[in-house]
């Protein structure tokens, strides 16, 4: 079963890679057939990805929540969220940025592979931690979607300001729809993130963890929460321009990346089971 899971994982990665190339062709040529094949490859990759996660969980008597598997789960959630976005806004162009992000997460996850079985912390053996991880994984996927949309916003705004009718200008969606997508993605992700963090805090209190807040991962998570909280506050109160909030979303996404990859390589602190 474990071998089948690995094979399915690589199939998924290759299919996402193929979809990335096809989305790039679609972006440059704007031929609908490329986007159809790209979506097909992404869908096939997603099925393999789901099968891989399922088989691995069966082989290991549960879903591991280490750094490697969390990136794999994040990639899975990202592709799932992408399909929802594509269904809702009908803009295939987001696939050009989101599917490569998913592929990258799959590849990066392989650098975090640990040899031998990971020690299972007693803290993890609780339903609250399962929900905590699931919430944060989905919230991160939402933040990435929001950040990708924000990046598209800044690129499109720059094209409009510079008055260049470039390929980028023609292919990217209108400013209003990009901004709306970014805001909605972050607005949906933020409560999930908050709930995920709250569950983690509750679990820390339950297990009487002293100084849990001093862990670099916990502090970074707090920073991510603060940045996206500020994003929503500024956006909905209309006290900042869309350009400023887009930049804020990119900062938030950068922190998510730091938290997901760099912080997990630091083997110290309370949150060690995430390493």
């Amino acid at each position: 079963m474990a071998t089948a899971a690995v094979i399915a994982f690589w199939f998924a990665t290759v299919l996402y890679g193929g979809a990335t190339v096809l989305y790039a062709y679609f972006f440059l040529s704007k031929r609908p057939s490329y986007s159809w094949y790209a979506t097909f490859f992404t869908g096939a990759g997603f099925l393999c990805h789901t099968a891989s996660i399922g088989m691995r969980s069966v082989a290991e008597d549960g879903t591991r929540l280490d750094g490697q598997n969390q990136l794999i789960l994040l990639a899975w959630a990202l592709v799932l969220v992408y399909f929802v976005v594509e269904h809702l806004v009908k803009f295939k162009v987001y696939g050009v940025l989101l599917v490569p992000a998913g592929t990258l997460l799959m590849v990066v996850s392989q650098f975090l592979a640990r040899k031998g079985a990971a020690p299972v912390s007693p803290l993890v053996e609780n339903w609250k931690i399962g929900i905590h991880v699931a919430m944060i994984v989905f919230a991160n996927a939402g933040f990435i979607v929001g950040a990708v949309a924000s990046l598209a916003y800044l690129l499109q705004e720059r094209q409009l300001k510079r008055k260049k009718a470039s390929v980028l200008f023609k292919r990217l969606p209108p400013l209003a729809s990009i901004d709306l997508l970014a805001r909605r993605a972050i607005a949906f992700a933020f409560p999930a993130y908050t709930a995920g963090l709250m569950l983690g805090i509750v679990r820390a209190y339950e297990t009487d963890q002293r100084g849990w807040w001093a862990d670099p991962r916990v502090m970074l998570a707090g920073l991510v929460w603060g940045v996206f909280g500020a994003y929503l506050a500024l956006h909905y109160s209309e006290r900042a321009t869309a350009r400023t909030t887009a930049r804020l979303a990119l900062v938030g996404a950068l922190l998510v990346a730091v938290l997901a990859v760099v912080a997990r390589t630091v083997p110290a602190g309370f949150h060690v089971f995430g390493v």
């Binding site: 409009l160 009718a165 023609k170 209108p174 209003a176």
Partner: peptide, 23 residues
């Protein structure tokens, strides 16, 4: 994409407005 993108001044203005406001 031969029929896409405006080729008159007034349509170009409409196209640009749509790039800002969508609809």
């Amino acid at each position: 994409a031969i029929g896409e993108n405006a080729v008159s001044i007034s349509y170009a203005a409409v196209e640009l407005a749509k790039k800002v406001f969508d609809s």
